[in-house]
Amino acid sequence: MSDFVPDELRALRAVLQLCDPVPERALDAACAAARFVSSEGSPATEVLELVADSADTPGPALTRGADRASRVLTYALPGRVLEMDLIPTVPGMLTARGIVIDRAGRHGLGGSVTLRHPDGEHTGVLDRHAAFRIDDVPAGPLSVTLRPTGSTPLVADWLVC
């Protein structure tokens, strides 16, 4: 790119630096992300693939029995899907409710689901219907980990919720 910087661009840069600078908090969070670095990747895990996101469909998604818009994420794992509703509770907080079922709609999987966020994680145990509920999840970057009993954990990529 040319070294010449037009006056308008310099003025705009000044405006953005004054009114909308790169937040120190964002840089601090980026530096803190170093703790997730792994040279070999997560050991002994498989991929939990996001296959559907209600954000991709038009119109607000309303969860069952709720009057506020929720977001529904569907993940695929071999032979099964994990469907999860993220329901806003108070500002900045979510409740996650979900279920793990096979292609025929049957449950029967034991284990747990963990929601990781940059400052920690919350875990819910699958009940006898392979359903789970996790309260007080902070909105923001999240990653889902499914730990089936006796099987390799499955980890999804991060996304902002």
Binding site: A30, V37, V160
Partner: peptide
């Protein structure tokens, strides 16, 4: 992030998730 985000808070989340994704996918 800011070019496509509606507000600074969302852009901060996008930045954070971008760096976390890099950290976890560096080996790829």
């Amino acid at each position: 992030a800011r070019a496509y985000s509606m507000n600074r808070a969302d852009a901060e989340d996008v930045c954070q998730v971008t760096w976390v994704l890099l950290a976890e996918n560096l080996h790829k």
